[in-house]
Amino acid sequence: MKTPPATLADLAPHVLRSRLEKGVLAWRLGAVTVRARSRLALLGESLREIYGAHPLSDPDMDGIDFGVILDRPASPLGRLRGQIAFESEGEAPFEPLTPKHVTPMLEWGLNWCIARHANWHLMIHAASLHRNGQALVLPGPPGTGKSTLCAALVHAGWELLSDEFALISLDDGMLYPLWKPISLKNRALDLFRERESVRLTQQTFDSLKGRIGFWCLDFGPGGYSQWPAIPAWIAQLEYRPGAPLQVQQMRKSEAFLTLAQNSFNYSSLGERGFSSLFSMVEACECFDFHYSDLENAVALFDDLSGERRASA
């Protein structure tokens, strides 16, 4: 008996395309499983580049969490311009873009769907990573350097849970992984391009926030985590050019507020959101953290995880 294809890259190109056209291409992203439909050959190539190593799912047999469509838009004007549109469950949250933006559109679209639908987690806008099962949560609005620091920690051997989300399970309080590439912008892009073992998407993309590229990881240490992790540290970041590394204990009440404010669904979860956040903050060491030098910052967190291990 032939073994079924296990990863997206195992699919022959014409099979991948035909599944995508029929809307039965499905793959696992860790905490969620998605399916996609598209007639764009470009999307097939982009999926192979970013999600090639990801396990396939069978929409006839496995649970699928949501589906996305990337295709020509419905409006005649959009078609005339040769644009593509993102749609999921009857909603189109973004303006149509040119086909060469299919990769960022897919990435933003998936994030949008996760933030709306993965409500069996408390979801916080934060980077999350772990070392030896002990997880670090880095909350912060865009521009605080959380993606850059997250990328640097992964490069130093931490396992990535997600560069955009902290997904705290309402069942067990663990942080669950999302196997999505790290999105790098502008200077961070140049910084990591030169590093060994960093596989960036071949193309970069112009956006309102500047140039964007995606770092596609492998699984395991220095890559995507295959397992959930226990929350251990919460660090609120601030990148201050030229300033020395500064770390202060943060009050738990303050950490709680920071996380609640950065949450996608804290208030709609009600009491369960509160108790789940409360337990997490109770169990974590909380820091306020200013940095300018990336290597110093990485060393600090490495020490932290080492100390934690030693004392455990």
Partner: peptide, 8 residues
């Protein structure tokens, strides 16, 4: 293995 969607 049959292709997903065949049983549609």
């Amino acid at each position: 293995m049959s292709e997903p969607g065949d049983s549609r």
